[in-house]
């Protein structure tokens, strides 16, 4: 049953694959969240078996979406910008829904 996140199942799959790619390429754990006031609600990304105990950085991408990561700044700036851009696109699509 589809849960009421603002992401479609295709987008969730896309984000899951992106998190896997980031992990493979940079060794960095990321997961994607929907921002609801103080709540950052899990949407997709790093799985429990990969998680390390580390202070996580919460990076807001837009009013609605964010990324949580253990080593966000270890991802090259250019790639970080690409991730932000992808999420920005999703945010725009969401706003238009």
């Amino acid at each position: 049953m589809e849960k009421g996140t603002c992401f479609s199942s295709i987008e969730i799959k896309k984000l899951t694959n992106l998190a896997k790619l980031i992990k493979k390429k940079y060794g960095v754990n990321v997961w994607f969240v929907e921002i609801l006031g103080k709540r950052w609600s899990y949407v997709a990304g790093q799985r429990v078996e990969d998680s390390s105990i580390f202070p996580y950085e919460c990076v807001p991408i837009s009013e609605r979406f964010g990324v949580v990561s253990d080593r966000w700044k270890q991802i090259p700036l250019e790639s970080r910008e690409q991730i932000k851009s992808l999420l920005d696109d999703m945010a725009r699509e969401y706003e238009q829904k």
Binding site: F32, W40, Y42, V48
Partner: peptide
């Protein structure tokens, strides 16, 4: 709940005994 450990994510971490260390810290 302020960094995305919610719903299935936190429940999986609890089941695997990972969350207890976050709890402690």
């Amino acid at each position: 709940y302020r960094c995305g450990r919610t719903g299935k994510c936190i429940m999986d971490m609890l089941k695997k005994g990972k969350e207890r260390w976050f709890c402690k810290l």
